[in-house]
Design a protein around this nucleic acid. Structure first.
Lengths: 165, 165
DNA sequence: CCGCAATATGTTACAATATAACATAACGAC
DNA sequence: GTCGTTATGTTATATTGTAACATATTGCGG
């Protein structure tokens, strides 16, 4: 599975098929890896993608409940833990929120562009960053386990929208 | 003010003078900028440095109280807000914790190496990372406001200590 | 020096996020 | 089918962070 070209979802993109694609990828990946993508986990992953922007655990909880599932905080957090452990979702810690991973199964760590106007997120996958980090770490004798980069700002669409006013 | 060479504080470094130096820098900087480094803010900054590793807001609260100050959560959070707005401290959002900034007044954003064994943190200041980010952002038409990079792993000292066992 | 406006702090209450601990249910290898 | 393992349900609570309003302190113009 190759990484997508990073981009913010355009306002008129095909939401439904893009969610469906992500779920399909996840299903395939879990099957290959012998991971149990249970109904609950599948449901949570679907909600994450359907929101199509970082979504809080308690929002997910509410949405789960609305779909008729009996759920409490641990229900959601455990599903999120599974998804994150297996690279199907990421936590954006500056927002206390979660997003679907655009390239599950593909080796990488998290790099996000976060638009502070529309709240949407694009996931980058720039190898140069990892390479710089490796060099810096090596110099200090530091062994890197994982890392995350969260970039806040304004996306192109929102910039143009504000110019049209 | 130039950035320090990034490093983890060695076990036997001169704690007291290193805290004193950081406070002195902050005092000078605030005076120059006409910022009010009040007693409370000074006290919080001192505690942050004295801990010498990421420290939670409620830990700071407890330490403040032990020092005889009447304090509630907003007391601490407001002081932290001031310190962060003015580049004297950073929040490490993956830890919900705060650290003193090693190069206050020097233009930069936050880059941390976090040792998951000893809990200590080194602040990097690698211009190459910012430059890569700028390029990526430009390609997507994204305007960067700020960013943070949090790298987790094991520092040199802890690695060597574990080998000595 | 006084009084006023702006800024900072105190205080109470509560919101938002996350986890512990233990019970029950579902799964899957044998 | 049985049994050990893994997943989910359930209750309670811990941790982190803010809202809103009262009081105190600061610095400045007069």
């Amino acid at each position: 599975m190759k990484p997508n070209t990073p981009s913010f979802p355009s306002a008129d993109h095909d939401h439904a098929s893009c969610v469906a694609q992500a779920l399909k990828n996840a299903e395939t990946y879990c099957q290959q890896q012998g991971l149990r993508l249970t109904k609950l986990r599948h449901q949570v992953l679907e909600l994450i993608w359907a929101n199509h922007q970082p979504v809080g655990a308690y929002e997910l909880l509410e949405q789960l409940t609305q779909e008729g599932r009996k759920a409490a905080p641990p229900t959601v957090y455990r599903a999120l833990d599974f998804l994150m452990e297996n690279g199907l979702a990421h936590r954006i810690s500056s927002l206390n929120a979660y997003v679907g991973c655009s390239h599950a199964g593909y080796d990488h760590t998290a790099q996000f562009l976060i638009c502070e106007v529309c709240g949407q997120v694009a996931e980058l996958d720039d190898a140069r960053i990892g390479s710089v980090i490796s060099k810096d770490a090596k110099q200090l004798g530091f062994s890197v386990a994982q890392w995350s980069l969260e970039i806040t700002g304004i996306c192109d669409q929102c910039k143009q929208a504000s110019q049209d006013e």
